[in-house]
Design a protein around this nucleic acid. Structure first.
Lengths: 151, 151
DNA sequence: CCAATTCGGTTTCGTAACGCAACCCTATTT
DNA sequence: AAATAGGGTTGCGTTACGAAACCGAATTGG
């Protein structure tokens, strides 16, 4: 059978994973956040097969995470740029990055070094928080009935 | 060739995706956060094939995201419980959930309703922030050289 | 202007993963 | 003792993934 899709799931995590839940999509988005815009640059920097890259870029464009814009002067030359929707994945990527740095630190010990452009100071640890900004753990929150979560 | 693995990538996002970057793993973690602990409950609530569930649970246990504990009184009966590492995925899951709710709202309009157990108030929107808690966008931060990011 | 290279893919083909259904053994319930 | 539930494993067909080859348009170099 086909891989299970979650388009119509009533769980937003499942719907989100449907768009960026495969091995490559989030890495492409991350790379785009680093400033990469060109097909060949994605391909070389990620080491991804060209057909897979094509497929993922198309899907990300279809899902409006990236926008494909023709920047050619004389003919066609393309750039893939983050949309607002794509930029909104920033917290997801950073949360994942911080988790990875904490629990699977790099062999060479290098961790996330991401700094505020204005102040030069490192960014803070991400956390789920209440309306006042007080950090909450999974045990502090009350999850409503998931009903039919991911079927 | 085998699916590309990212175990040894020097990018922590890639390493994180190596552990929870497939279609099901994060949904299993989410379900565990809802309180599900038993094999059969995961299977029914997620609608996942049993062999896939076995494989994912094993991998999550191997990666110490879940712990498999024998809770049988007379014989073997198992529970899969979140470890600290698994609970630390909370910000990732919530960030993904909020993104999904914002950009792919449920057909019935129901969005995330997750509340502080203590106050009953809904949780806040997640964001990347500086040391003082000031929200930062992807444009506000300075990304250091990714070097050899995800190869 | 012609040749070489780059860009942005598509095609081919072999392998790995996924999904379903069926089966199995051990506990527990009736 | 029989039936059912828990926790898997095995087969098998379909789909996705990955590498490399190929391709046409655009650019670069001479």
């Amino acid at each position: 059978m086909a891989r299970k899709r979650f388009d119509d799931s009533n769980c937003s995590v499942a719907r989100a994973l449907n768009e960026v839940g495969d091995w490559w999509s989030l890495l492409i988005v991350l790379q785009a956040m680093y400033g990469t815009r060109r097909y060949v640059d994605f391909q070389q920097e990620l080491g991804i097969a060209k057909n897979i890259l094509c497929d993922r870029l198309s899907r990300l464009v279809d899902n409006e995470v990236l926008a494909k814009v023709n920047v050619g002067e004389h003919g066609a030359r393309y750039e893939y740029r983050l949309t607002d929707k794509g930029r909104d994945l920033f917290p997801v990527v950073i949360a994942l990055r911080q988790w990875g740095d904490k629990w699977n630190p790099a062999p060479d010990g290098s961790a996330l070094d991401l700094r505020d452009r204005a102040t030069g100071r490192p960014i803070g640890q991400m956390h789920v928080s209440d309306a006042d900004g007080k950090p909450l753990t999974v045990r502090d929150v009350f999850m409503p009935e998931p009903a039919d979560d991911a079927g």
